[in-house]
Amino acid sequence: MTLTILGAGVCGLAVATELTRRGALVELIDPTGGPGERSCSWWAGGMLAPFCESETAEEPVTRLGLEAADWWQSAGVEVARRGSLVVALNRDRGELDRFARRTTQHRLLSGDEVKKTEQSLASRFDRALLFETEAHIDPRHALTTLRDNLAAQGTPVLRDGEPAGIIIDCTGLAARDHLPDLRGVRGEMAILRAPEVSLTRPVRLLHPRHPLYIVPRRDGHFMLGATQIESDSRGPATLRSTVELLSAAYALDPGFAEAEVVQIGADARPAFPDNLPRIRRRNGRIFVNGLFRHGFLLAPAMARMVAELVLDGRKPEVMDEDHGEWRAA
């Protein structure tokens, strides 16, 4: 059986990795040459935070997301299992209570405990929620690790090639011609280098207007994210979004004042109307799409389900259409 995977973003790379791991021969085609600025996952935060996400996401996101941390680790990606922290400014204390009510697997920290957990937040936050079991990864490191491991096993990302056999389309928004109910949700982010800031785990700042998360990366780098705008635009970040992100970061930790702004980026996440992912068989292809803001959290479970579908003929729970145009060989 020949399998062709289209798209070398987080979804396509995870599917290729999972299928290869199960002994299948795959071909991976991406006209951009593989993970990079043209994939929306390049701009992601990399939080593996199934419980925090349950504040707004529906149940499958949390359950399927539980597979993520172990999968990434088994794929050779460095996974930081330090939990995540959620804080609110004093005037928005009600937001923290609301967040606590709508999520599970957290512990309320007192001011002293905040100090022990993240020293630099101590003076500004006398309460925080700690989600101990959550983790984070560096998305660019994760994507290039999958790409390199696949290449080492004889599956490099091909810039062009003729799709053969079963085609698994993981091209995100580029698949819109086939998936008319797919839409883009724009996100804007920034990468800062701030040697004065000592945060060691993702921190979410609950703010009624400008919610923000900060994810620590290597060598004093931090990722700030992310806006969520109902727009397909993949153009550069706007001034308003940038100002809001940067000033929220400064409110969280004034140590960001002297940070170097390394990069400001923007892209659009592919999403279906319920913001849940889908596997869909249509037009002679298997589409894996709609991972929305949960690319790194959900790609492992989506990859497992695709493998079960094509190798074992098992219908996945997130499959919403099956026109039977293709049968397992």
Binding site: L182, R183, G184, R186, I229, E230, S231, D232, S233, G235
Partner: peptide
């Protein structure tokens, strides 16, 4: 959301 009709969906 408006720029260039990007919010059309």
């Amino acid at each position: 959301e408006g720029a260039g009709g990007a919010g059309a969906a």
